[in-house]
């Protein structure tokens, strides 16, 4: 039987990067809720914030991949 404690232990053993989507969602929800009262506006603003952050992190990831795979051969 899966208990809450078992689930918590499972998340602790996950890769470090699994904390990233959790934090992106939670931080954007709280930040957006501090800007609006209406649930629809909170959700819309939070989704937009998540999109921006994911795009930014994805861009950094792509730059690092390019540096690692392409530029490293020229070095």
């Amino acid at each position: 039987m899966i208990t809450a404690s078992t689930l918590l232990l499972a998340t602790a053993d996950l890769s470090l990067y699994w904390h990233l989507p959790i934090l992106i969602v939670l931080v954007n929800l709280v930040y957006s809720a501090s800007r609006y009262d209406e649930p629809g506006q909170i959700l819309a603003h939070a989704l937009r914030g998540m999109f921006y952050i994911v795009c930014f992190l994805g861009g950094v990831f792509l730059v690092l991949v390019i540096l690692h795979t392409v530029v490293a051969r020229w070095w």
Binding site: L23, V27, S34, R35, Y36, D37
Partner: peptide, 22 residues
């Protein structure tokens, strides 16, 4: 996690005092 929760609560305190930043 604990530090981010503390910092985000500053926004919550401000929201309680002055309402949402609109």
């Amino acid at each position: 996690y604990t530090v981010m929760a503390g910092i985000l609560n500053l926004l919550v305190i401000y929201d309680a005092w002055a309402g949402p930043v609109r």
